[in-house]
Design a protein around this nucleic acid. Structure first.
Lengths: 341, 341
DNA sequence: TTGTACGCGTTATCAT
DNA sequence: ATGATAACGCGTACAA
């Protein structure tokens, strides 16, 4: 515990009568094996460092070393539990690799994203993780020019290296399940139109039904934000059609919760009148009053493996596009077979 | 858009034939009014800076300026939507004040907290925001020795400066509401025992009932984590008592959702058999199949005002303890009056 | 208006 | 085993 004015290597050097470079060596454990500082000296330095409450200045070290050991992370919004979970995986894994992380919300807004990325570049991040990629890839094309390595998580884009849930497989799992229950008139809450995860989940889902002779009408695929409000808005549109769909697939659990709310307002019961399947399997899905069927997305692992991949790339290993397997979790919101019109 | 190797002031200086200090002045807009660089020079510098894709090195600037313009933020877990919302307020407001933020999850674990705080100190944060304070204040007492200004949000502790929801008022709002409905046999899901927000909400709630001659028995106040799993666990305990409570107050909405789940498993209906009131009023509370009554916590504002306070303190203004008013939102989970044992 | 010189805290290299 | 020196990129007092 020290007080007041920052203690630096210089401070310690003066107090011990040694020279700054020597102090630095001791504190960094530099000089391997035989050529270490004398045990006595080392001990003295460490002692003084503790007394004066020395805290190394990573920034200054980074300036000299030309490497910040800092990873920049862009997320659309941390209030989205899915993105927050991915970030947890990122933070923990980065720490294991000796990196710190700095995260920002882009709100899926180009200007905000640009501003925050400039900020991170100014802080000399060694690499970037993007969890908010837009499928058009315009921003990333420009960013690549900076020469800063990066990996996408959550949403793929173009052929940039990425770690995502296998969203195509996930969309198909949901489709297979509802189709097997006998549903043929289905609707989709499709997520934001520029997010590849929603796009892929929706594409695989609608393709499955189309291939079996039951194409999903265009007006039964509604784009919306991934939260409950978005899901509610989309559900209003889907249920305005007569006859209403017998099953709804929402590409996010929170959107699905919005759907459940609207169903109830209209006197329909989820799981009996309309089957509902969500995506991600966030913790509350299983705790809802009508437990929600969902496609499990290994969110934490997406973040963790994203950092692993990035670290490998920084070592010169080749970029990859990794997808992690989803799993269907059937619960009451889609447990009973479809019984007629 | 530039390529490859980092461009610095030096790069620009060489390209323009000017000297580094001149370039620096232009790019910083230094030299007020009359003594500005000649318009022609300034324009040329800016032009070249753009061409080579110059990105200023904030770290180096901070080293020189002895101020990082960086705020450190500690949260228990960003997957808690409440904390993520508070962080949004922090991030946005900090940006407005010209600060960047660096956030870490402490998991409410002392060792992890210590490690991350050391990291932030190493990065020379100008100040700190703690959203994960423990009521004992042991950690903060030690931290204060560093001389780095800080403000607490979400959870108060001791007489440290803080911005929180008025949790006492909030707990009382919940109590008044349930008491007025006729409930006398009530239970509380009280949150983590070291978190002041849960403590205050619980204290005000139980005091209200005690003062009216209906003290809440000790075994009807159950501590649990703030998430759905914690709420479920606590609900099991509360409902094992016979007769079971006619109303349950959970100090967090997600815990309340866990309660709703358990009620249903036991064949009890929330709002009819057992009234439930949550806290925070997160967006999904209103969207649930049985909409959840909740005490609204101005989460975003808590974060925003926390930064405002911190900035004022850094300017030398006195520390404060600020509380923001909660509001009761009555919904179906506690809408009907109590009708007998 | 522009140039010179130095220091911020650290690490790498060379000399002792 | 330790000391001396330079350099990372930037900002600022002072001189021209």
């Amino acid at each position: 515990m020290a007080s007041g004015g920052r203690a630096t290597l210089k401070t310690i050097a003066e107090l011990t009568g040694l020279h700054v470079s020597t102090v630095s060596r001791v504190l960094n454990g530099t000089t391997s094996g035989a050529r270490a500082a004398s045990a006595a000296t080392a001990e003295r330095v460490r002692q003084v460092a503790l007394e004066v409450g020395y805290v190394p200045d990573i920034q200054a070290a980074g300036l000299r070393r030309q490497s910040s050991r800092l990873l920049g992370v862009m997320m659309a919004r941390l209030t989205d539990q899915v993105l927050a979970s991915i970030y947890e995986g990122v933070e923990r894994t980065a720490t294991q690799h000796g990196f710190h992380t700095m995260v920002s919300n882009s709100w899926d807004d180009p200007a905000t994203r640009q501003a925050h990325v400039s900020m991170l570049l100014s802080r000399r991040v060694d690499a970037m993780i993007f969890g908010d990629a837009h499928v058009d890839g315009a921003f990333l094309a420009g960013f690549a020019a900076h020469g800063v390595p990066f990996v996408l998580v959550n949403r793929r884009a173009g052929d940039h290296p990425s770690v995502t849930c296998d969203d195509l497989a996930g969309g198909q799992l949901a489709a297979e399940h509802l189709y097997a229950l006998g549903h043929r008139r289905v609707g989709v809450v499709a997520g934001l139109p520029y997010a590849a995860n929603g796009i892929d989940r929706t594409a695989a889902f609608t393709r499955y039904f189309a291939e079996r002779g039951h194409p999903v009408p265009g007006d039964q695929v509604v784009h919306a934000s991934f939260d409950a409000a978005g899901g509610a808005l989309a559900a209003e549109k889907l249920l305005d059609r007569a006859p209403h769909p017998s099953a709804i697939f929402a590409v996010s659990d929170f959107a699905a919760i919005g759907v459940l709310g609207v169903l109830r307002e209209r006197g329909l019961r989820a799981g009996r009148d309309v089957a509902v399947v969500g995506f991600n399997d966030v913790p509350i899905a299983a705790q809802l009053t009508i437990p929600l069927s969902s496609v499990r997305n290994p969110m934490y692992e997406v973040g963790a493996r994203g950092v692993d991949l990035l670290v490998r790339m920084m070592r010169g290993e080749p970029p990859e596009r990794i997808t992690l397997a989803p799993e269907l979790r059937i619960r009451e919101s889609s447990a009973s077979p479809y019984t007629g019109a």
